[in-house]
């Protein structure tokens, strides 16, 4: 199972503890994570299911290539980091 970690900055708004989650792609893994934490989903995705413009996702230190579909594969031992993109200031 991949490890999902969130930026510390989000924690003061909504609790997003690190968790190990199973799934083949970033989208699958995050959907599974947010099923148990719906409030947090709204901080990362907009209501159309799109990754918020100034959020960024890394897989094992590399930025995801498919920001719209989040179809990038994740290995079972992988680590997903959800952070704020510096583009947001």
């Amino acid at each position: 199972m991949a490890l999902v970690r969130f930026t510390q900055n989000i924690q003061r708004h909504v609790a997003c503890p690190p968790r190990n989650v199973e799934g083949p792609t970033v989208r699958d893994i995050l959907n599974a994570y947010f099923r148990g934490n719906a409030l947090a989903r709204d901080y990362v995705f907009d209501e159309q299911g799109q990754l918020r413009r100034h959020m960024a996702i890394f897989i094992d230190g590399e930025p995801v290539l498919d920001r719209r579909g989040l179809a990038d594969p994740v290995s079972p031992a992988g680590t997903i980091d959800i952070v704020q993109a510096l583009s947001g200031g």
Binding site: N9, I10, H13, D42, Y43, V44, D46, R52, H54, M55, Q84, A85, G88, G89
Partner: peptide, 8 residues
Amino acid sequence: DHGHFGVK
């Protein structure tokens, strides 16, 4: 408006 995290 949390910017990165959207409007609440």
